[in-house]
Computed example of a mutant assay.
Amino acid sequence: MGVDATTEQRIVAVVVAWNRRDLLAQNLDGLAAQTRRPDAVVVIDNASTDDSADLARRHPVVTEVVTLPTNTGGAGGFAAGIARAVAHHGAQAVWIMDDDTVPTPTALAELQTARIRYPGRVSVAASRAAWRDGREHPMNTPRVRPGVSRLAANAARLVGAKPIRSASFVSILLDADAIREHGLPVADYFLWNDDFEYTARLLRDGVGLYVPASRVYHLTKVFGGSDADPGPRFVNEVRNKAWLFGRSDALGPVDRALYAGSTALRWVRMLARSGDRAALLGHGRAGLSASRTAPRSTVEVLRDTPVAADVARIERGAGRD
C-alpha cells in the first residue's frame, strides 16, 4: 500500500554542512519557505571550521545541530543525520540534502504528493536538481530503472514521476521503514558513490520515483558531470566503486554488469579529457589498492560521535552492525 493520504506523516529534513556557511544560509531559508514545511530540521555539522554550526543554531527553522568531532564526509554525515532523524526525532520519512542545495517552495510538497498518490510504498523519491542557470544538473540525474514493467511505468507516470534505480543525495525523500530494513549509508565511503550504493540498496527491491515537479538548485561551483577529472578524489571513486561492485548487496548480477560497463566507459572518457593522465592513473591504482580492505561498519566509523547510539540502533535493527 502507498502512504495513507489521510494520515499526515512526520517528515524530518537532514542537511549535511561543511564550511559553506553562505550556501547553508540559503539552504535553510529555502527550508523555511516550504509550503509543506518539515516537522523538524537536523543539521549535521561535519566539524566545520567556519561559523556554519553557529549560523544553523540561530536559524529559526532548525530543530537541532549535531556537530561531529571530525569530518566524516558526505557518507558519514548522511548516515549520522538519517539515524538521528529516525531513531531520535521519530521520522516517518527523511528528506536529505547537502548545504549547497536550495529547495524551491514546493519541493517537499511535490515529493510527498507523489508518494501519497502512488499505489504502493515508495522507498525513495528524488527531486529535479538544476544548476544556477536552470539547466538540469548532470551530477544529480537519477539512473532510470532498466527493464521496468509497463504497469510500473504507468503507475509512476500517473503521479507525474518516472521509475528510477538510484539517485544522488541532493534532495531525496526516504521512507523510514525502508531505512530500518536496509540500514544506513556506508560511512567509510567518505565521498563518491555513497549515494549510488545506498539508494541502489534501498531500491533493489523497492520503488524509486523521479519527481521533476519537485525542484531544487544545486549550487556547485561549476556545471559538469561525473566524468570530469576529479584529481586526488579519484582514489575514492575507484575504491568505492570496487567496494560497490565487489562487496555490496545493492546490485544484482545484471545491474552489476550494466553499471560496471558504464563506469568503465566513463573512466575512459575521464582519462581522455584529463590534463594529467599519469596522475589520474596513479590515483586509480591507489584506489584499487585501498579497495582490498573492506569498509568498516558504519557503527564503527561513527562510534565516537553524538549519534553513536542512534546509528547502532538502526544498523543493528537492519542486521548490518
Score class of each variant (00 low, 15 high):
Arg256Tyr: 00
Trp267Lys: 04
Gly225Thr: 15
Pro232His: 07
Val15Lys: 04
Met1Thr: 07
Asn154Ala: 12
Val12Cys: 04
Glu181Lys: 12
Val299Ser: 06
Asp229Gly: 10
Gly73Asn: 11
Ser127His: 05
Ala309Met: 07
Gly208Thr: 09
Ala126Arg: 00
Ser171His: 13
Arg296Lys: 13
Gly275Ser: 10
Val66Asp: 00
Glu197Cys: 09
Gly77Lys: 08
Thr298Trp: 06
Met97Arg: 07
Val235Tyr: 12
Asp54His: 06
Arg296Met: 11
Arg266Glu: 03
Ala264Leu: 13
Ala152Asn: 12
Arg135Tyr: 01
Val42Thr: 14
Leu158Trp: 15
Tyr198Val: 01
Ser48Asp: 00
Gly252Trp: 08
Phe196Gly: 07
Asn140Trp: 13
Leu302Tyr: 05
Leu23Phe: 05
Asn140Phe: 15
Arg285Cys: 00
Thr106Gly: 06
Asp100Lys: 06
Ala250Ile: 02
Ala17His: 04
Ile11Glu: 00
Asn240Leu: 04
Val301Met: 07
Gly76Cys: 03
Val268Ser: 05
Leu111Tyr: 09
Val211Pro: 05
Ala17Ile: 09
Ala129Thr: 14
Asp227His: 14
Arg84Phe: 02
Val307Gly: 06
Leu151Ala: 15
Asp175Phe: 00
Gly231Thr: 09
Val124Ile: 11
Ala75Gly: 10
Pro38Val: 11
Ala91Trp: 08
Glu8Met: 03
Ala213Lys: 11
Pro212Arg: 08
Pro138Ile: 09
Gly160Thr: 11
Val42Ile: 15
Ile82Cys: 07
Ile11His: 01
Trp267Gln: 07
Ser48Thr: 14
Ala126Tyr: 00
Ala250Val: 14
Ala40Met: 11
Gly147Phe: 04
His88Leu: 12
Asn236Arg: 14
Gly246Asn: 04
Gly120Leu: 04
Val307Thr: 13
Ala126Gln: 10
Ala109Glu: 13
Val238Phe: 01
Arg121Trp: 00
Gly284Leu: 05
Ala290Tyr: 03
Gly134Lys: 01
Arg135Cys: 02
Leu271Thr: 15
Leu31Cys: 11
Arg204Glu: 04
Arg273Ile: 02
Val299Asp: 08
Val15Met: 09
